[in-house]
Amino acid sequence: MRDEELQPQLVELTQGFLRMWKAMLECHHSQYITISLAYHARNSTDAPQGDARRQIMVQLQQEIECFGVSFTDWVNSHASYLEALNCWLQNCIIEPQERSKNRYPFSPHRYLGFGPPIFVLCREWSAGIKALPAEELSAAIKAFLSDICHLMDQQLEQQQKKDKSVDANNGESESRDGLNLLTNGDTTADVSSNLCCIQASLTRVLDKLNKFSEASVKMYEDVRQKSDAARIAYLKLQAN
């Protein structure tokens, strides 16, 4: 069952992940380029104002929080699955009951070098998952959320100032400029600065996501190559 059923399924699964991450890499690279160009354009003339912008920021915060939690859960679940699989495979190794005095002690790690290829597949897969730059991406997501929260706090503070100003003037502003500020909640300079901050932070997230995708593609390609090499070596060993 291990070599005839489980191994082919795991090989198919890793190949599916390789195809997935190649597609994800193309997608995330396009996203990174798009946001980078938007950041350098620095055009805020059409930016939503007031309540509309606050609602957008709340929705963005919720989506990014969900993405961050889902990403962390996915990586941890993946690592836990492979760790459990490797532990189960260790139970398949039968240690010799007797050994010569001149022989080295039995080592499961030495067995993995010439044993069934499923051992190499799972070992390399587990090590590859742990080596992915997941922490860097998670840190970028947290920093992005922090920037969003900071901006939302600023918006709330500006809204409170606007409300106090309206109350102090009995609902009327003293000048046309004051009316524009109270209506929009921000000056044009504030809007431009805030958008630049958010765009820069989002660009860093997409950069880390792009690099994570690149690392994932390389990892699964390495797993495939080493698994194929182990399979060929094992077949030659059985033929002798």
Rank of each mutant, 00 (worst) to 15 (best):
M1D: 06
D3S: 07
L6G: 03
Q7G: 00
P8W: 10
L13T: 12
Q15V: 02
F17P: 00
F17M: 15
W21F: 15
A23W: 10
A23S: 14
L25N: 04
H28P: 00
S30E: 15
Q31L: 15
Y32Q: 15
I33P: 03
T34I: 05
L37P: 01
L37V: 13
A38K: 15
R42Y: 08
S44V: 06
S44R: 04
D46Y: 11
A52I: 06
R53L: 13
V58C: 05
Q59S: 10
Q61M: 09
G68D: 02
S70L: 12
S77Q: 13
H78E: 14
Y81V: 11
Y81W: 14
W88T: 07
N91Q: 14
N91I: 09
C92A: 13
E95G: 00
E98M: 14
E98N: 13
R99D: 03
S100H: 13
K101A: 12
N102S: 14
R103Q: 11
R103G: 01
P105F: 07
P105G: 00
P105V: 04
P105T: 00
S107C: 11
S107G: 03
Y111L: 08
V120A: 07
L121T: 04
W125F: 06
A127D: 13
L132H: 01
P133S: 07
E135R: 10
A140P: 02
A143Y: 06
L145H: 05
I148E: 09
I148L: 15
H150C: 05
Q154N: 12
Q158V: 05
Q160V: 08
Q160R: 08
K161A: 14
D163P: 02
N169H: 15
N169D: 12
N169A: 14
N170S: 10
G171H: 06
S175Q: 06
R176D: 10
G178S: 12
L179V: 08
N180L: 14
N180P: 00
L181R: 14
T183R: 13
N184F: 11
N184T: 10
D186I: 07
T188G: 04
T188P: 03
A189K: 01
S193Q: 10
N194C: 08
C196W: 09
I198A: 12
I198T: 02
Q199H: 10
Q199R: 13
L206M: 11
L206Q: 03
K211R: 12
S213K: 01
S216V: 02
M219N: 03
Y220C: 01
A229V: 03
A229H: 06
A230T: 05
I232P: 01
A233G: 00
L235V: 03
A239K: 10
